[in-house]
Computed example of a mutant assay.
Amino acid sequence: MSGSKVAEIVEGQKDFTGADIRSVYSKVSNTYAVYGTDDRVMVQFADDETLGSEQRLALSPLNPVRGEINGCIDSWRTPSKVPLVDNVSKAKRFDRRTADALTVALQGDQVHAEELLRAVKADILAQRFSMGRAWYMLVATLAAIVIFAAFWGLSGLEGWSNPTSFVGFVGRNSIWLAASVGCLGALFSIALGIRTREIRTDLELRDNVLDAVLRVMIGAVSAIILFSLFKTELVSLQLGTAKIDLNGTGTPAVHAAILIAFLGGFAERLVGDFLSTAVLGGRTGSPDPSARPTTRTNEGANEQNPRGTKATEQTTGQPRMAHIHGVDDEVDNCLCDAQLDADELTDDVELPEASGGIEKAA
């Protein structure tokens, strides 16, 4: 079978493009068939060329949303390499909903079909944003662990006691402690605000990875700067009768250093939120399911007349007259498109004599 007729759309066969038919969602004899392949949801239009052309015109306003849906779930059509992640089932679920929306459109209700497709798109984006947040948190955690381990690892290197070396400077001035604890404070800040952060979908994984790593690094640097401010006594803090002194010795000074470093890392939100406004401005962190459909309601539409354009011809036997004024489309009392019965017409002989006109030349 070539798959060029509605009756030839059978599961396990090939369609007219040569793609394998995996599922047949709906089918009306000789009128249409909605089916799924490995790549997308497809429509086999009516065997009658006139009706098939009407169906294509009826579905054309929905094609942009269909394309966005396909673009969002294309990567889900192949099995995921991540354990316990079943993307194929999610793609099949959204394909089923897309097919149902196309069936509604082929039945003549393009308005509700577009609403259904936009709801499908919103749910897909919600899934994508959720996965983006998960990847963001995972990358931020790995970045914090790497920075923490790197600075703590400096304590085992030679030259720790040499004040003129970089390792000695980091060790003798407790810079390693500030940076390592500061990245943990940044990670804690990210975890608390992960639901409200400006995070992109997992389709833009590179941007999410870059932003997560930068926020952790900002937390480490902020902790070092705040730690240095207290160390130089340019800034002081006193709680009750106890004054935080980082230049002292003993356990209280160490705990105070950890506290200051953690607060400095937690302050990455101030810098990070500024970066979100400047870099990610205009990008929303959640889909907007309230987008209004652009198609119009078609009166008299059905599966044999999906656009409703033949309703007037079927009832009156005459094609519907187009509005000729063009400038008064909003006027609701214009009768130029109205069809009159025979008993409502007036013969020319019954019309009153015309008066006025142009005077003939003498």
Rank of each mutant, 00 (worst) to 15 (best):
E49A: 09
E49N: 03
T50C: 00
T50F: 12
T50L: 11
L51N: 03
G52N: 06
S53T: 14
E54A: 05
Q55F: 04
Q55Y: 01
L57C: 01
L59Q: 00
P61C: 00
P61S: 01
L62P: 02
L62T: 01
L62K: 04
L62S: 03
L62F: 02
N63L: 11
P64A: 05
V65E: 08
E68H: 00
C72M: 09
C72W: 01
I73F: 00
T78R: 10
T78I: 10
K81P: 06
V82Q: 12
P83F: 08
P83D: 11
L84M: 12
V85L: 11
D86G: 11
N87A: 12
N87D: 12
V88L: 05
V88C: 04
S89T: 14
S89C: 02
A91P: 04
K92P: 00
F94L: 09
F94R: 09
R96G: 15
R96E: 15
R96T: 15
R97I: 11
R97G: 07
T98E: 15
T98L: 13
A99V: 11
A99G: 14
A99K: 09
D100L: 12
L102Q: 11
T103D: 10
T103K: 14
Q107T: 11
D109Q: 06
Q110M: 10
Q110A: 14
H112C: 01
H112E: 11
H112V: 08
L116V: 02
L116C: 05
L116T: 01
K121C: 04
D123P: 04
I124P: 06
L125I: 05
L125R: 08
A126M: 10
A126G: 12
Q127M: 13
Q127V: 11
R128V: 09
R128C: 07
R128G: 07
S130R: 13
M131F: 13
Y136F: 15
L138R: 14
V139T: 14
T141Q: 07
L142M: 13
A143N: 10
F151G: 08
W152I: 02
W152G: 12
G153I: 06
L154A: 11
S155A: 10
L157W: 07
L157T: 13
E158F: 03
G159N: 10
W160L: 12
W160K: 13
